[in-house]
Amino acid sequence: MTLTSSTLSPIHGAIVVGASSGIGEAMARRLAREGYSVALVARRVDRLNAICDEINAQLGTKRAFAYPHDVTHFDEVPTLFQTVLRDLERIKIVVYSSGVMPTMALNEYNFEKDRLMIDVNVLGAIAWLNQAAILFDRLGSGHIVGISSVSGVRGRVVNPGYGMTKAALTTYLESLRNRLTRKGVHVLTVKPGFVDTDMFRATGRAASMAISSDQAAGDIWKAIRARKQILYTPARWAWIMLVIRYIPSFIFRRLSI
């Protein structure tokens, strides 16, 4: 795909937070391929630089830019957001993909792990997406993409903290959507099922159950273009969650999912 920048059709920018692995990395690669200048934000500097170099080498032009940042350093976010906006000039898409899910035994209650999940999965998302909301509110356009999870739909016996953070993120994104749709901004809540990422592998499930993160990124890109509100990827999880959502509590509390 050849791309020329002109005033009438400028190259737009995208920010992907949590771009050093998983769905974030795949999204960064996809957006760069689709012609965006992409700011990759993540903590692991080496990994980040390697991905940027790879994308730029593949495309033969500088499209990926690395911004090392730990999402739990909330105070740095406004300044870093400004720096990215300054460098890319125009930002059209902000994807928040950072997320952690420490392994948690069924009888484990661990405040430190829960707090880490709240910091990364919720507060980091709010810090970044608030900035995106301000910008897009002013612009009257833009796409906010939050990677939530099917885990946020019900409180399950496995990892209470994780499900809680994803429920919080889903509700936060819904609020953003209700605030910003009237301003012309599109907010997409992504609820991945089994996607073959580091997080998925840590659960010990068979890789054959999952789709690749590139496939997930493809679904997300299509959903952005179609201005879809909620995306289950893979799509069959919409049906699975429809069932799970309506399992009555007296049954659900006896299940081990």
């Binding site: 005033t7 009438l8 400028p10 400004q82 906006l85 000039e89 125009r90 301000i134 910008l135 002013r138 612009l139 009257g140 356009s141």
Partner: peptide, 16 residues
């Protein structure tokens, strides 16, 4: 942060 446009309203640009 403010949305600015050219007089022709064909370019959108956000600046401080």
């Amino acid at each position: 942060l403010t949305l600015l446009q050219n007089f022709g309203r064909s370019i959108k640009s956000a600046a401080y």
